[in-house]
Nucleic acid binder design. Structure first.
Lengths: 133, 133
DNA sequence: TAAGTGTACTATGAATGTTAGTACACTTAT
DNA sequence: ATAAGTGTACTAACATTCATAGTACACTTA
């Protein structure tokens, strides 16, 4: 079962982006298991008090990004394995990584603190392929 | 002198955000030195073909974030040292770091590749306080 | 004085995000 | 077959944001 998805209406980030991000996190860090069913568009719309169209947009994006798959008439489910790494997306992620780490370092955060967070994050992310914990 | 700032009009990210990000990068990675003068609002507007109001908004944000300082009638200059780390901003950066590293790992990028980028980025970022290269 | 600088303000148009409502095809269980 | 639940598509309306255009004023420097 999916945990509560909290939406912050004061956050300037679009609601459908917030939903996408939260669900991605739940999948990446293993709170949602492969092939597990996600709440339906209408159900999640009701529990979050968000318009169904907005939920649908989030789900649609998640599907085209390969995080979930859709079966018409049945629902949305967690993709068992991530889509083949899109090189465009990878470049975006690397650019974000450099910008974020650069700013943290610039602000005086010691290298040790940064690498520690990186290590822990990798350890906690969902194992893929032959990766074992 | 500031390098060329390229704006991608097809990028959905707002222009003033793109400008902010580029200048931040130039400061963080040392291409712009402390107290170096930035191009004036009107000058940068002309070289980029962007409206002066948009440039002004980017500069204003950069100043309130502590990356540059403004002297009325003279211009904008690179801040000699970063503002005291705003804890709210730090939390945002850590959240972004976790999300980015998590997704990279989930997509199958080996830990080695990720940590390598992190190390290189820290090495190349502008040294602060007592940090030596 | 003149040129260059930051700043403030109003107005306008375009794009985006969100909601509302309706409708239809599909799947499952009764 | 029927009903309930599912994804999906579409139009319409509204609010907000982004970007531009134009004008004006105070400041600094030569």
């Amino acid at each position: 079962m999916i945990p509560i998805i909290a939406i912050d209406l004061r956050n300037p980030k679009p609601i459908y982006e917030q939903i996408k991000d939260k669900i991605k996190q739940l999948i990446i860090f293993g709170a949602l298991k492969p092939d597990e069913k996600l709440p339906s568009v209408r159900e999640l719309a009701q529990t979050t008090s968000i318009n169904p169209n907005t939920i649908q947009k989030a789900y649609k994006d998640l599907e085209s990004d390969g995080f979930i798959y859709t079966v018409s008439g049945r629902g949305n489910f967690v993709a068992p394995s991530p889509k083949k790494a899109d090189s465009k997306r990878l470049e975006e992620l690397y650019a974000t990584l450099r910008a974020t780490v650069g700013e943290l370092s610039y602000l005086g955060v010691p290298e040790k603190n940064i690498t520690e967070v990186v290590q822990n994050t990798i350890s906690n992310s969902r194992p893929q392929g032959g990766n074992k914990v």
